[in-house]
Amino acid sequence: MAWCSLCRWPVASVIYLATSVCAPGLAHADDWGCQVILCLSNPGGPEQYGECVPPIEKLWNALRHGDPFPTCNVGVGGSQGTSASNTYASAAYCREDLIYWGGPEQSELLGRPRGAINVDISAQRYTRVWWDANAEDRTITDFYDAGGTQGNTQAPYDLTQAARELIERVGREDDGNGGGGG
């Protein structure tokens, strides 16, 4: 089956999850939710493989319409602690590089993505997928190594502090360029 090409990922719990999706005759009512977690856990992005495009496009459509995040029963067979959840993004929960000044007179800090989906495997953060980042259908995937440390950015960041750090950085830049000093 086409889904089995995704089953080669080296994480044991993802392999278990993939087995439940790939194995014929073991279909469950929550297969879509399991496909979504499998695709979202790909460090190369949720739609890197053609088999992931339909379930992920269905996810984006559902989330844009306010539907709940799909579920997958992965709490058996050693995959406990594997889950995915959506958090709607804002300036208070966003990467610094995705925050911008907007609103009336460019006076509000806003987050570009609609949301962030955190994927945990074996109770460790594995990926975070920012969806509708900068444009509809654009995603950015942050991959974390086995210890939960970000593997694809220069330094880990605290999402709840990103807006404050952006304001401080802009203030330092303004002061360095002769602005803001009075």
Rank of each mutant, 00 (worst) to 15 (best):
E173M: 06
G75I: 01
Y16T: 12
A89R: 06
C72I: 09
D120W: 04
G151P: 04
I37P: 09
D30K: 11
A12I: 14
Q150E: 10
E136A: 12
G178P: 00
A162Y: 01
A163V: 05
W60I: 11
N73T: 04
D145G: 05
H28L: 13
Y100S: 08
T153N: 08
D30P: 15
G147Q: 11
P70N: 05
M1A: 14
T153Q: 14
D174V: 01
D30Y: 14
A162H: 00
C39Y: 00
L109Y: 01
G182Y: 07
P43E: 03
Q35Y: 03
W3H: 13
I37K: 01
D97V: 10
D137M: 07
R114A: 13
I167R: 14
S20C: 13
T87S: 14
L159I: 09
G171L: 04
S79G: 07
G44M: 12
R164W: 06
S41Y: 08
S5P: 03
T153E: 14
D137V: 02
C4E: 15
H65R: 13
H28N: 05
P113M: 12
N118C: 11
F143E: 03
V14I: 13
C52M: 04
P68E: 02
C7R: 08
E51W: 03
K58G: 06
I140Q: 02
P43Y: 01
P43K: 09
D120R: 15
A89Q: 07
Y157V: 08
G115P: 07
C4I: 13
D31Q: 15
P156E: 05
N42G: 06
H65K: 14
N73L: 11
C94N: 10
A116F: 03
G44P: 02
M1E: 14
D158W: 07
M1R: 12
A62Q: 14
H28V: 09
G176D: 01
C7E: 13
A135K: 14
T87A: 09
D120L: 13
W3A: 15
R138T: 02
W101P: 01
L59T: 06
D142R: 00
D132N: 07
Q154Y: 03
L40E: 05
Q48P: 07
A84D: 02
N61E: 05
P43C: 08
N73R: 07
E108I: 01
L59A: 04
N42W: 05
Y144W: 07
G25I: 04
V74G: 03
D97N: 14
L109I: 02
